[in-house]
Amino acid sequence: MSRIGKLPVTVPAGVEVAVKDGLVNVKGALGALALAENALVKIENKAGSLSFTPVNDSREANAMSGTMRQLVNNMVNGVSKGFEKKLSLLGVGYKAQAQGAKLNLTVGYSHPVVMDMPAGIKVETPTPTEILIKGADRQRVGQIASEVRAVRPPEPYKGKGIRYADEKVTIKETKKK
């Protein structure tokens, strides 16, 4: 059996988990998330702890038990603590500005790039060269951060562009005559 799938998910105080009608619903202080239940995994809720067991001994059921466990764990952590991604802008004149649910980027194009944030995602700019993307759904936070980075990914010669805060960009050597 999957080693991750064997571990139970502890549900903290203030978080409600309901498994019914083929859905796993998680409600907490930062929102509510839902996930479709998989037929290969049996989910049991025992006194503030969720356990995931494969229905049969197949390889797919074993793998899916670990996957479902981790997805539900991310949902529980998301509605209790939340997730965030930090991006930084490098380049002369590159700046970002959060205006409500919109992110206004000036990254070297002839026009500013305005991105609308979906519901459940908050964007902040503590400084003009930093972007914080926050939300309860880990997958959506990562996807939005990836889309913002794709506006101007870091280029390999000077390193200019939008990058994750912990990303290392390897600078290439220029051509020699």
Rank of each mutant, 00 (worst) to 15 (best):
Val17Ile: 02
Leu103Asp: 08
Arg69Leu: 00
Val41Glu: 00
Val123Gly: 11
Ala96Ser: 10
Gly161Met: 07
Lys95Trp: 03
Ile144Gly: 00
Val107Ala: 13
Lys160Tyr: 13
Ile162Thr: 02
Val141Ala: 05
Arg3His: 13
Ile162His: 06
Pro8Cys: 01
Val92Thr: 12
Lys175Trp: 07
Gly22His: 05
Ser80Lys: 11
Lys95Thr: 12
Tyr157Ile: 13
Asp166Thr: 06
Leu30Tyr: 03
Thr53Cys: 10
Thr67Arg: 12
Val114Cys: 06
Val9Leu: 00
Glu124Phe: 12
Phe52Arg: 01
Arg163Asp: 10
Asn45Cys: 02
Tyr157His: 14
Arg3Met: 14
Glu130Gln: 14
Gln70Arg: 10
Met68Asn: 06
Lys102Met: 13
Asn74Ala: 04
Leu71Met: 15
Gly120Ser: 11
Asn104Gly: 04
Gly28Leu: 07
Gly14Ser: 03
Thr67Glu: 08
Glu147Cys: 05
Glu44Gly: 08
Gln143Ser: 10
Tyr94Asp: 09
Lys176Ala: 15
Gly48Asn: 05
Met117Val: 02
Ile43Asp: 05
Ser49Arg: 15
Val11Arg: 04
Leu23His: 08
Asp57Tyr: 03
Leu7Asn: 02
Ser58Ala: 10
Gly108Leu: 15
Ser146Lys: 09
Ile171Tyr: 04
Ser110Gly: 09
Ala63Phe: 06
Ile171Gly: 05
Gln139Asn: 11
Gln139Arg: 08
Met68Cys: 03
Ala34Tyr: 04
Met68Thr: 02
Ala145Glu: 01
Gly108Thr: 08
Gly82Asn: 01
Ile4Asp: 11
Ala47Phe: 03
Pro12Leu: 11
Gln143Ala: 10
Ile171Pro: 01
Tyr164Ala: 07
Glu60Val: 15
Val141His: 09
Asp166Met: 01
Lys86Gly: 09
Gly48Pro: 07
Leu132Ile: 14
Asp21Val: 03
Ala145Lys: 01
Val24Thr: 02
Val107Lys: 01
Val19Lys: 02
Val72Cys: 03
Arg140Phe: 01
Ile4His: 03
Val41Phe: 00
Val26Glu: 00
Val15Asp: 09
Gly66Cys: 12
Pro126Thr: 12
Ala136Gly: 07
Val107Asn: 07
Leu40His: 03
Ser51Pro: 08
Pro54Gly: 00
Gly91Ser: 14
Ala98Met: 14
Ser146Trp: 01
Lys20Asn: 08
Ser49Leu: 13
Lys85Thr: 01
Gly78Leu: 02
Gly91Phe: 04
Gly31Gln: 10
Leu35Asn: 01
Leu132Cys: 08
Met117Tyr: 04
Thr10Trp: 06
Arg3Trp: 13
Thr53Gln: 10
Thr10Ser: 07
Ala36Ile: 08
Ser49Thr: 15
Asp57Gly: 09
Ala18Asn: 14
Val113Gln: 04
Leu23Ser: 07
Asn56Gln: 07
Arg59Ser: 15
Lys102Glu: 13
Ser80Asp: 14
Val19Met: 05
Tyr94Val: 11
Gly91Leu: 12
Gly100Tyr: 04
His111Tyr: 13
Pro156Gln: 12
